[in-house]
Amino acid sequence: MGDHVRHHSHHSVRRSYDTVAEEYADRLHNELDGKPLDRALLASLLEQTEPGTAIADLGCGPGHVAAWLAEKGARTVGIDLSAGMVETGRRRFPQVEYREGDLLGLPAGDGEFGSAVAFYTIIHLDPGDVRRAFKEAARVLRPSGLLLLAFHVGEEVRHLDEWWGYDVDVDFRFLDPARVSALLEAAGFTVEMRMERTHYAHEAETRRAYLLARRGRA
């Protein structure tokens, strides 16, 4: 994957999310209310996060997941490629600290976070970049820190030119949980939990996977 192609892919994802930021936040700001399994996993992550450390929300969008964690007492930092999403999030969820940035070069210090969540963010990465993103997640986590991932299961790539009436250019890559697990292990994580579920009635009709992985101590 050449840097030129990667740059185009990044640019189109960023621009697409900038375009839908307000609509996305309007539609999804309460989405966890209808996702009991997601809430349970987030609560489990929170319970296992070292007290006093921050939780990163990687690819946070408007930050509704980070805001839910903040309501439960966590210090949260939302990181997103889209300036539009970050701007929308700062207005709606001021309890979250936001940073504009890239999964392949996170704007965070080594070992800054006690744990991290990445819901439906690696689905926008080029396949060759997923391991690099996991290495970067490991860098910003404390030793033994946890990473909670969610993604769509499968092999297809869904391309959107139109999203809620807006013109966009974005790919959603469905992923194989076994391959994602192998990439996590290669990046120095140990996968502790793997769960799959069908979609809730109000969600897109996809099968979803969740992985909870622990960074090595070294």
Rank of each mutant, 00 (worst) to 15 (best):
L160T: 09
L175I: 08
A56R: 07
A186R: 00
R15E: 12
R139G: 04
Y166Q: 12
E185S: 03
E87Q: 11
Q48F: 02
G73L: 15
A83H: 14
V153P: 04
G188F: 02
E156R: 13
A178I: 00
S144F: 03
Q48I: 01
H159N: 01
R6P: 00
A21M: 06
G114D: 01
S82F: 12
H29S: 11
E22M: 13
F174M: 09
R6V: 01
H7W: 10
A218S: 09
L81S: 03
P94G: 11
V168P: 08
V170L: 09
H4M: 08
G105S: 12
F113Q: 03
A186S: 02
E155K: 14
S16Q: 14
L184P: 02
F151D: 03
L125W: 01
F93L: 03
G34K: 02
R179W: 12
I123G: 10
H10E: 15
D18G: 06
A43Y: 05
G73S: 14
D110I: 06
E192F: 11
G216A: 01
H11W: 09
R14L: 08
G89A: 06
G52L: 09
L160M: 13
L45M: 02
L32T: 00
D57Q: 07
Q95M: 07
Y166R: 14
R173Y: 10
A209M: 10
L149F: 08
P127F: 07
E203V: 08
S16H: 13
E205I: 02
R173E: 09
L211I: 11
R91C: 13
R179Y: 11
V157R: 05
E112F: 03
V157S: 04
S12P: 02
L125N: 00
L160A: 14
G84R: 06
T88D: 04
A218L: 07
R90W: 13
L46I: 05
F134K: 05
A201V: 08
E205A: 05
V77L: 11
Y120S: 07
A186E: 00
V86W: 12
W68F: 15
R179C: 08
E23A: 10
G34N: 06
L106Y: 00
V65F: 14
V140E: 02
P62D: 15
L103M: 05
Y17E: 07
P51W: 15
T19Y: 14
G109H: 07
I79K: 09
G111N: 03
R131Q: 10
V96T: 02
